[in-house]
């Protein structure tokens, strides 16, 4: 048990280190000078003030220190929970801005991922043995897989919101509504939440159901399934065993998919102007708000790692073999 977790934890620490280092290195490796670009924004027309300002910012952001010191300071700040200050929304702290946006993103992602995973697996497993379902779910699943995220979201926003007015076209809640624990506010949140949620859900759903269908068909052909049938076990029992085995690769697939789903979520938030992290990082990029950009990058990596940790734990729970081997190692 400890060995399994120590290994996993080692991987997470390594991935976290790599993520933070990449995040730190990007501004320093890229061509061009972000400080110069920032000073240029003040549109100064003479060289004297420009140089003075450049020196000031260079020092303020710590770019005048040796690289090694900069790297060290970066980690030091990170562990103090300091991700810097937004340039665009000065003097707002990056952490505060992330904290405001994160709930919207989580509210979209968590239900969409869980629901598409659970329903996709169920329906996919059913499709594996029912011809009618198979002939509808499979083509639909492939169709959703072939659609670009951005386009599905645009098409949904166009037809369901702009044309039919069933849902709002954009935003996280009705403009001018005070946030609070009121029915008006919460219903407005839900009303704005549904369409972005639906698009993220649909795209993932297709992938899971197709994957599960193929896996269950494969499992039903294995020796243990044949043996069970030869013993006269009822179809339901055989399928239950097949399902339990097929769910394992799906679960590891879920861990691999997280990065992709997050990417799709960013696109969806941009289409719907939904005030989550995806929208925040998109505006940060257009505003060249570097501290905010890099802060969100780290936050998302931490999120992916935490989600992976949860999946690891669930894996132990669904796969008795991991559990047994761990007990064996402990004994």
């Amino acid at each position: 048990m400890t060995r399994y977790f120590a290994r996993k934890l080692g991987l997470y620490v390594l991935a976290f280190w790599a993520g933070v280092t990449i995040d730190w290195a990007i501004p320093r490796l890229m061509p061009g000078n972000p400080i110069a670009a920032y000073v240029d924004r003040f549109a100064l027309n003479s060289q004297g003030p420009w140089t003075a300002l450049y020196k000031l910012f260079d020092k303020a952001f710590g770019y005048n220190l040796p690289l090694w010191d900069q790297y060290w300071h970066y980690w030091d700040n990170l562990f103090h929970g300091n991700l810097g200050i937004s340039l665009y929304a000065f003097p707002e702290k990056v952490t505060t801005m992330i904290a405001q946006a994160a709930p919207y993103t989580l509210a979209l992602l968590v239900p969409a991922i869980l629901l598409s995973y659970v329903l996709g697996n169920r329906i996919g497993a059913m499709a594996a043995r029912r011809k009618v379902l198979d002939n509808t779910v499979l083509p639909l699943g492939y169709l959703f897989q072939a659609m670009p995220y951005a386009w599905l979201a645009l098409a949904a926003a166009f037809y369901l919101a702009a044309v039919e007015h069933w849902f709002p076209v954009e935003g996280g809640y009705a403009a001018g509504l005070a946030s609070g624990f009121t029915w008006a506010y919460i219903s407005s949140l839900l009303y704005h939440w549904f369409l972005p949620f639906l698009t993220v859900f649909l795209v993932s759903f297709g992938g899971w159901s197709i994957g599960m269908r193929n896996l269950v068909i494969y499992e039903l052909e294995t020796d243990y399934a044949r043996y069970l049938r030869a013993l006269g076990a009822r179809g339901r029992l055989v399928r239950r065993y097949a399902y339990r085995n097929a769910v394992l690769p799906q679960l590891s697939g879920l861990a691999l998919q997280l990065g992709t789903v997050i990417g799709g979520n960013i696109v969806t938030e941009v289409v719907f102007n939904y005030p989550g992290l995806g929208h925040l990082i998109y505006t940060a990029a257009t505003d060249q708000d570097y501290a905010l950009l890099q802060g969100i990058f780290i936050f998302i990596i931490v999120g992916v790692l935490v989600a992976n940790f949860v999946i690891d734990i669930v894996y132990i729970w669904v796969d008795p073999r991991t559990r047994l081997s761990m007990q064996g190692a402990a004994a």
Binding site: Q145, A146, V203, G207, G253, L256, Q257, T260, G264
Partner: peptide
């Protein structure tokens, strides 16, 4: 697949899409 991930969602989008399948 496809994963379409867009999406490298293979799964979902392709990548996305791509992967699960």
């Amino acid at each position: 697949m496809s994963g379409v991930d867009q999406a490298a969602p293979g799964g979902t989008t392709t990548a996305r899409g791509a992967s699960p399948t």
